[in-house]
């Protein structure tokens, strides 16, 4: 099939077999979430500083304010997307065997979604009244 006697051109034979064609999308989303993380992480650091050593009622009062809760939710979303993409690049760079690589990339997605879901649940529960 891949012999030189094939009627198909070399380009025709490989077309459609290569990348998943999501490379630029991955690159761009990594940059978009990097920009949003930059802003949201600074806010997050501010919130954590404001919470440091606070007793439960004061901490809950701050976390359940709509503005704070919305910003935390945005940060969770942005950070989880960003970290999933970043870890995928690391996995693809260092894990070369096909099956472990697929399992690691899949596990990476599960991890990011699990962390994100737990965090979103907690913030929503807090802001909807504990």
């Amino acid at each position: 099939m891949l012999s030189n006697s094939s009627m198909r051109t070399p380009l025709g034979r490989v077309r459609g077999l290569g990348s998943a064609k999501s490379g630029t999308g991955h690159f761009w989303l990594q940059r978009v979430t990097a920009v949003s993380n930059l802003v949201l992480a600074i806010i997050f650091i501010g919130v954590v500083i404001a919470l440091a050593g606070r007793p439960y009622p004061a901490a809950i009062a701050l976390l359940s304010q709509p503005c704070v809760a919305i910003l935390m939710l945005l940060f969770i979303l942005s950070a989880c997307v960003h970290m999933r993409l970043g870890m995928q690049v690391i996995i693809e760079d260092y894990v070369h065997a096909e099956v472990p690589k697929i399992l690691a990339v899949m596990g990476n997605t599960f991890f990011a979604i699990a962390v994100g879901a737990a965090s979103v649940y907690a913030v929503l529960k807090l802001s909807f009244g504990g």
Partner: peptide
């Protein structure tokens, strides 16, 4: 990459802390 991986793994602790806050005063304390 090292700091990124550290931050990645540490999100478990942040999520745990948020879930503790959502679970009530005993867990949060």
């Amino acid at each position: 990459r090292v700091t990124g991986t550290g931050l990645y793994l540490g999100t478990v602790l942040i999520a745990a802390w948020l879930v503790a806050a959502a679970s009530g005063p005993v867990a949060f304390d």
